[in-house]
Design a protein around this nucleic acid. Structure first.
Length: 151
DNA sequence: GCCAACGTTGGC
DNA sequence: GCCAACGTTGGC
């Protein structure tokens, strides 16, 4: 089993939004970065654990714990011309973008990026590196355990 | 297949 | 709103 951190903009889907969804599950649609896609398509398995992270907001940070609840499948938004994630080069026969489903396990207190930066044990986390833009990143098991200890 | 230009991300 | 970082695009 692997551990991940997945960014969501709370104005799009916040941890409270996720908690209110049927089965507390959301399709992680709209990923248009190959590295992030490959993580979902090639590596994520049902049961993998996920830190649900709020980004591009007043208080960026980890807001919940979730898990992968469905293996990657073609992202429906790529086929819809009216959708902002429409990709004219994608076809149902040859889809380009995939997403998994993510199910909330529990909302946590907000562990801000500022707090994460205070711990030397977490200094190598991808999310904390300068210039990091990847919205889905693997989390080291030791980092996962450490952060679980903060919650 | 190089690389300049451009667009996007996301913390601050 | 700024801007550094980095991914993508497209002309050559």
């Amino acid at each position: 089993m692997r551990y991940w951190l997945m960014k969501s903009e709370p104005t799009d889907v916040s941890v409270d939004d996720l908690a209110a969804l049927p089965n507390q599950t959301v399709a992680w649609y709209g990923i248009r970065n190959y590295q992030a896609r490959n993580f979902m398509r090639d590596q994520m398995k049902v049961g993998d654990k996920v830190f649900f992270y709020h980004s591009s907001c007043a208080e960026p940070g980890i807001a919940g714990i979730a898990s992968v609840s469905k293996l990657a499948y073609p992202d429906a938004t790529q086929f819809d011309p009216k959708n902002k994630y429409f990709d004219p080069k994608a076809t149902p026969e040859n889809p380009r973008w995939f997403n998994v489903d993510v199910k909330l396990a529990k909302k946590t207190r907000l562990i801000s990026i500022k707090e994460l930066r205070e711990h030397p044990q977490l200094a190598h986390m991808r999310i904390l590196q300068r210039g990091n833009r990847l919205s889905i990143t693997p989390v080291d098991p030791k980092e996962w355990e450490f952060i679980m200890g903060l919650i």
